[in-house]
């Protein structure tokens, strides 16, 4: 247990800021998840998975309200995260979205179908 060991990811057009909200791990995204973001994002979500295990998090919240777009390669990093957490016991995952970003509703619906009952989408 203890505090967060996960740091901030800062790129020119993409970033992630972590926080703890009680037993929840909250990751706040901003910018555009394009080709430049693919590798850093995949590595970051690997570390986030370790953090979830270390903290025995009750929930993971991905806050996408300031995320303008995400390509399919970035999307795949979330598929891997969801699969890894399923194998590790299935922590609930919440995506917090902004209805003004229309792609979020369409894209995240596929992740909800991937882990029905465990992945929820909040507007």
């Amino acid at each position: 247990m203890g505090g967060l060991t996960l740091g901030v990811l800062r790129q020119s057009s993409f970033g992630i800021e972590p926080a703890l909200d009680g037993a929840r791990l909250v990751l706040q995204f901003r910018g555009t998840g394009d080709l430049e973001a693919v590798e850093p994002l995949a590595e970051y979500l690997d570390r986030a998975f370790d953090e979830v295990q270390r903290l025995s998090s009750a929930e993971v919240r991905f806050d996408f309200r300031e995320l303008e777009f995400m390509n399919s390669s970035c999307f795949k990093a979330f598929v891997t995260f969801i699969e890894r957490t399923r194998q590790a016991g299935g922590v609930p995952i919440v995506f917090v979205t902004d209805p003004a970003h229309h792609w979020q509703r369409r894209s995240l619906e596929a992740l909800r179908r991937l882990a029905m009952g465990r992945v929820t989408i909040e507007t």
Partner: peptide, 25 residues
Amino acid sequence: YDRTIRASASRRQGSGLGLARIRAE
């Protein structure tokens, strides 16, 4: 698309999702 997403979890290189995403999403 859903099948491609499931298969992508174990892919090491690329996602293979882009074109399926265009058609489905």
